[in-house]
Design a protein around this nucleic acid. Structure first.
Length: 307
DNA sequence: CTCCAGGTCAGGT
DNA sequence: ACCTGACATGGA
């Protein structure tokens, strides 16, 4: 069973891709260029690429879309036959109907100068909502890899085991499909030692169908604990899977090497381990913790965490 | 060649 | 509870 987001019928052989006309996508608050890039291709999801013409093309679930900036706004286009729910699905992925203006205000009004600086440097940033399946697979491939490498691995997995949606564009394989894939074949997709995590999680989920439904039904703390039962899933990957699937709203505060360093620099947290840093972040930023984390992640990678 | 990357886990104090 | 090294792979 492919990922739940089901929109495109299988691609016919060698048919040229027809795209719908560009249509305006009202977005409030608006994206800055950096905000859009960080949302689509900043390490939240790994299947969006910008062409030489400045047009973004992305795959999530069984959907495909194109996005581009227009005068003061955003425009979208979809493969012909995508269905009437293509726009709502894209809006849902990008959280375009959530009150991000209020989230930014809440972060800024904490009196936190760090957050004020971050929000203005990358305005419009959203936290994406992939399916839990897809977010989990994405971040199981992420340990000790850079974002371009993660993108490469996921593209390889999609080409090898996923459904072809359009010529050359494949969905990620479902967990059910991955359960039937040999670990050696996974290593062929440059997964390295992460192949054991992917194979192990696929086997676990095959034995316990409904496990991820159980995760989705839990409040944040319980959902996190459940996910950490999966092989290769520690606190950080559990938090990423929950945050970037919208499963626990914006409560999770994933702590990786970048966030550890940045939090130490910004808030003087020398000596805290990742779990303690995550708890500190959740307490400090409350209901917008995940959004704050993403802003700090961006600042950190820009080398701007030491004012 | 060396170093490090959106970590996790097992095995030691 | 905390510390350490192993785990694959590729790019700087």
């Amino acid at each position: 069973m492919p990922f739940a987001d089901n929109a495109l019928s299988p691609a016919s052989e060698c048919a040229p891709v027809l795209w719908t006309d560009w249509e305006a996508l009202p977005v409030q608050p608006a994206f800055s260029r950096d905000g859009l890039r960080e949302t689509l291709d900043g390490g939240q999801m790994f299947r969006w690429n910008m062409g030489a013409d400045g047009v973004w093309t992305g795959i999530w679930g069984r959907r495909v879309a194109r996005l581009r900036e227009s005068a003061g706004g955003l425009e979208a286009s979809f493969p012909a036959g995508s269905g009437l729910d293509a726009v709502p699905a894209l809006r849902g992925l990008l959280g375009l109907d959530l009150p991000y203006g209020e989230y930014y205000s809440a972060l800024g009004s904490r009196g936190d100068a760090v957050m004020v600086r971050a929000v203005s440097a990358c305005s419009g940033l959203r936290i994406v909502s992939l399916s839990l399946d897809e977010a989990l697979l994405s971040f199981l491939c992420s340990p000790m890899k850079r974002i371009p490498q993660i993108k490469q691995v996921l593209d390889s997995l999609a080409r090898a085991f996923g459904q072809e949606l359009l010529p050359g564009m494949h969905a990620l394989p479902s967990w059910e499909r991955l359960a039937g894939v040999d670990e050696a074949a996974l290593r062929g997709c440059r997964l390295g030692y992460r192949a054991r995590s992917v194979a192990g999680t696929a086997a676990f989920l095959a034995l316990r169908p409904g496990f991820l439904d159980l995760v989705r039904a839990q409040p944040y703390a319980g959902a996190r604990k459940l996910l950490m039962k999966l092989p290769g899933v520690g606190g950080k990957i559990a938090d990423c899977a929950l945050l970037f699937s919208g499963t626990s709203a914006l409560s999770p505060f994933p702590v990786d090497t970048w966030i550890s360093r940045a939090m130490a620099d910004l808030y003087g947290l020398e000596g805290l381990n990742p779990e303690q840093t995550a708890e500190f972040g959740r307490n400090l930023f409350g209901e917008q913790a995940g959004l704050a984390q993403q802003f700090i992640f961006i600042l950190s990678r820009q080398g701007r965490t030491r004012p």
